[in-house]
Write a protein that binds this DNA or RNA. Sequence first.
DNA 1: AAAATAAATAGTAATAATTACTATTTATTT
DNA 2: AAATAAATAGTAATTATTACTATTTATTTT
Lengths: 121, 121
Amino acid sequence: MRYSQQREVILNLIQNTKIHPTADWIYSKAKTHIPKISLGTVYRNLKKLEQDKLIATIYDGNVARYDSNMEKHDHLKCNICGDLIDINKNNIDISKTILRNFNFKVSDIEMTISGTCKKHT
Amino acid sequence: MRYSQQREVILNLIQNTKIHPTADWIYSKAKTHIPKISLGTVYRNLKKLEQDKLIATIYDGNVARYDSNMEKHDHLKCNICGDLIDINKNNIDISKTILRNFNFKVSDIEMTISGTCKKHT
DNA sequence: AAAATAAATAGTAATAATTACTATTTATTT
DNA sequence: AAATAAATAGTAATTATTACTATTTATTTT
Ligand SMILES: [Mn+2]
Ligand SMILES: [Mn+2]
Ligand SMILES: [Zn+2]
Ligand SMILES: [Zn+2]
């Protein structure tokens, strides 16, 4: 993958925030560095960075958010501000542990387990 | 909430399938019963049915799917066909149990824990 | 260093999912 | 049967994302 200033700025933005930003957030921040950058360039590079395993896409409801923490981890999602907070599996024995460790009151745990179903054996 | 034939058809369709259908799937099936039904009506009723806790919305990547199984449960998502398969928490001790019980090979477990973060205490 | 090459970009158009709007219809109450 | 307000059909608007294309630019070759 050939170097481009645009991609470097995009990756840096994602790496320097903990907010798991959306494409639009990245686009508006990137414009302060490269005023002529286009939204298409942002999306194209997000795809490439994901293919290169430099970032991961998290679908948060109906919008994609991007994460540069490539260690396997899960998230706490606040119902009020929508923040996504990184957690590690070993930390999450139960809701009580989360309340203790993160001062976060759990109301729901959603889990999606991906893989290959029996139709493809 | 006042009765409407449209809403009854929509709810019945969701209750009579295990596929966790999308709005479009519901729309096309509903048209065979009520040819003049509009897509807006489908979405409006999906929202109302959710508010009334008759169905739940599952965000599967970037599209919403609808589920009439209102018992707390999680899903296995097949990477190949995209099927969502209901599971219960007690069943999911580990990947091995899932392989045994569902003949489903786990490649990834994603978990989102919702609640209220410390900023709102 | 200049020319050649192919990848990346800007800008715009297209698509898909969802929500909003409004005149008309319909379920329910009076 | 008339009145009322909720629900609908049909369409327009919005949002997120992808596609397209002429131009620019990073890298390689001479
Ligand atoms: Mn994260
Ligand atoms: Mn389900
Ligand atoms: Zn919060
Ligand atoms: Zn499958």
